[in-house]
Design a protein around this nucleic acid. Structure first.
Lengths: 117, 117
DNA sequence: TCTATATTTCGTTAGTTGACGAAATGAAGG
DNA sequence: CCTTCATTTCGTCAACTAACGAAATATAGA
């Protein structure tokens, strides 16, 4: 059995990872912003992001000292693109996901990281 | 976090369960037909079917001494229906899934269960 | 009722997963 | 070059999962 497809579902089958994906459906984020919303340790968030990236659901780009994460729904296999499209439109009736979306609007990496400017 | 959505992905994040779902996309099946194709023990197949049913992906109907399992894409929440629709159209490039589909055409519950008629 | 058989439940075992803190890595800016 | 800080990797532990065989349950037909 080709593990590729199973890994996509495995990546999505953790509450915190599903929250991350829905947060990234709002906008591009760095790890510290995600950590702030989820209230988990650095290492845990980093591991979740690695699992999502390895499954092909995320892409990351370096931006100075930050790494920006975003959903990978522009490239890649059609089935993954369709699935991400479906997720974008779904699960908004979930309490935790709605709260994350609200919290996310107040989160700013410059505040978290004590940058004065 | 509402576990409902996570449970759907969890149900799909096992190779054998994804194979079962794709088999049921072909046609309604009883447990013994699924067991024949997957070559796993009764109890293991039964447990997988329970997990898929609890996640809301399957329905079952009694038919004499058999229980028929089928995909639940006629009723239930929209997001599950959409996801099942997506799965129906996807993953057909997977080797194991293609082989299962071929094998399934030769499987007949009456042969497996030694019914003479 | 008795028997055969399809399915489910139970108990066990090996392997996987999610979480954390601590240490390592890598880039920005003095 | 040296400090700062965002991120990743490492080591560990508790909890969960997939698998099996054996026993229990339920239904069809004699």
């Amino acid at each position: 059995m080709n593990r590729e497809y199973v890994n996509i579902f495995k990546a999505l089958s953790d509450p915190n990872r599903l929250r991350i994906v829905k947060m990234l459906a709002e906008r591009e984020l760095c790890m510290c912003e995600i950590r702030e919303v989820l209230d988990l340790s650095n290492s845990t968030v980093s591991k979740h992001l690695t699992i999502l990236r390895d499954a092909g659901l995320l892409l990351d780009t370096k931006d100075g000292k930050w790494v920006n994460f975003r959903l990978n729904d522009k490239s890649g296999p059609g089935s993954i693109r369709s699935l991400i499209g479906l997720i974008r439109k779904s699960f908004d009736d979930d309490e935790a996901i709605r709260k994350d979306a609200v919290k996310l609007r107040r989160v700013n990496r410059r505040h978290i990281c004590n940058i004065k400017s």
